[in-house]
Nucleic acid binder design. Sequence first.
DNA 1: TTATTTGTATAATATCATATAATACAAATA
DNA 2: TATTTGTATTATATGATATTATACAAATAA
Lengths: 128, 128
Amino acid sequence: MIIRIDTVSTTPIYVQLRNEIVKGIGRGELSEGECLPTVRQLAADLGVNSMTVSKAYQTLKAEGFIETDRRRGAVVRAGVQSGAQPDERYREKLEGELELLSAEAKIKGFGREEFIHLCSMAFAGMEG
Amino acid sequence: MIIRIDTVSTTPIYVQLRNEIVKGIGRGELSEGECLPTVRQLAADLGVNSMTVSKAYQTLKAEGFIETDRRRGAVVRAGVQSGAQPDERYREKLEGELELLSAEAKIKGFGREEFIHLCSMAFAGMEG
DNA sequence: TTATTTGTATAATATCATATAATACAAATA
DNA sequence: TATTTGTATTATATGATATTATACAAATAA
């Protein structure tokens, strides 16, 4: 998977990295159990510091998206999430962000159908 | 409209303020043409600095959500947005954010129907 | 064993964003 | 004239961000 970083953006690099990897997992470009590049390798590829990559991995780990194994490195977490009970904390976070997006879209002139269409298209872009 | 600020949050106060006002406009609690509190008044109510409120207002102004009038102060921008051509820049921003939310939701185990339902409910919470 | 690689920890440093404080200005109103 | 509006400026303090350098435990490969 190719990751691009915008060094001009106000979004911290480690957040950009975290977001790109999450989207890669969502799209299926990164499969469950697949190893991510090592922090040093990815840092070298992107021209950033290895601690910045490490911070992105730690964020992903804390959020349950990956696990770190001393033997294999960083690994995409297997389908624990697809099963079991939905994460209530995440649900509230998602609802809050959708509320803000809905308000912005509404004010910007988007109708309900158009908004839902965009949501549907975005989700369709994910694996499965 | 009542605005609450979380001083512990990592989200900057001026961003929280901006978000709350956007949601207030979206819900219809703040009508087009309605005056917002003065920067000093809102700052006093919230116990923050007036420049922090000013920064939130400037952000809202730059995004086209409000206008500032020396006579009336900060005013919710009238329906320029509901008409005219959709803002292409905003559309891309929206699509990008929906892509990330979709990826997270997908990984967290949400199905298409559930995700769309949440989007629909969020938009339904907006005026109109 | 030894050498290497893994993620991680630590410390020092630099830069920028954030927030506050105090003061001041032009424009408009009462 | 006095007041209020948003805004500008300057100074200051704090925290987030990013880099650099070094080091560690754990596991693998030689």
